[in-house]
């Protein structure tokens, strides 16, 4: 199998708080995701056109994100609106950042991998009550991760590979599948249902399940790459 252009989840919604930004990758492209003060999500090329600084290091104020380096401010459409070094300058409309379609759905932040593609996000599941578990970043290629996941658990692959319904243990989990890059995959794991339906211990056991999955995926293909001691030191083991 292979992954084609389209919509992919790049974060758990609750991990991207209002007025913050974060850096991630999709197919090895560096992406800045940020949430404005009103809760809207944005996925941009992670590069200020001025001097190439990663915008994910920037700061969000209201409905704009400003580059950390020189404070250039961009509006929600990616257009530069203010250059502090020249406060009187009417900023040319040509100065803009490449923006990707981006939306919150199923407790995850989704982005379309293609700048020009204008296809709506069409998911086979539509729920508003979501209990987020955790995001899992695995040093394992996306295809190998998908195969290992299918071999371990009873899985149903949905949305062209962007969602996986996993039947492991008593509950059904949903994992958003992010092809992060060569040799790296992210899974954004949620339960379908309200957080009250899935109290602490249910989510905790899912988190342990996810951690064991990561342990196996990172150990199996290249045993030496698993950093010694990192699992024993993890807080959920104590």
């Amino acid at each position: 199998m292979s992954f084609s252009g389209g919509w992919y989840p790049v974060a758990l919604s609750n991990q991207l708080e209002p007025a913050t930004s974060a850096g991630t990758r999709l197919f090895d492209r560096e992406i800045c995701i940020w949430r404005d003060s009103d809760g809207g999500v944005h996925a941009w090329e992670d590069r200020c056109p001025h001097r190439g600084m990663r915008l994910s290091f920037g700061f969000v104020r209201g409905d704009r994100i400003a580059c950390l380096y020189h404070g250039w401010q961009y509006d929600m459409q990616g257009r530069c609106r203010f250059i502090p070094a020249h406060p009187q300058l009417d900023v040319p409309s040509t100065i803009r950042v490449a923006t990707y379609p981006c939306i919150d759905r199923l407790g995850m932040v989704w982005m379309c991998s293609d700048l020009k593609m204008e296809m709506p996000l069409d998911l086979p599941i539509d729920r508003r009550d979501i209990a987020p578990v955790r995001s899992l970043y695995v040093d394992c290629a996306p295809i190998a991760t998908m195969q290992a996941l299918s071999a371990r658990s009873e899985c149903t692959v949905l949305a062209g590979g962007a969602l996986i319904s996993i039947h492991a243990g008593p509950q059904n989990m949903i994992a958003g599948f992010q092809p992060f890059g060569k040799g790296k995959t992210a899974l954004h794991i949620v339960f379908l249902g309200s957080p009250e339906q899935y109290p602490g211990n249910a989510r905790r056991s899912a988190a342990v399940w996810a951690e064991e999955l990561r342990h196996d995926l990172e150990r199996e293909p290249v045993p030496d790459t698993a950093p010694a001691g990192s699992y024993e030191a993890a807080p959920w083991r104590s």
Partner: peptide, 17 residues
């Protein structure tokens, strides 16, 4: 954290003021 790490000399690759 500048991208690319190497300095671009092509004038249009960045946006000087």
């Amino acid at each position: 954290n500048q991208r690319p790490l190497l300095l671009p000399l092509e004038p249009r690759s960045e946006t000087p003021t």
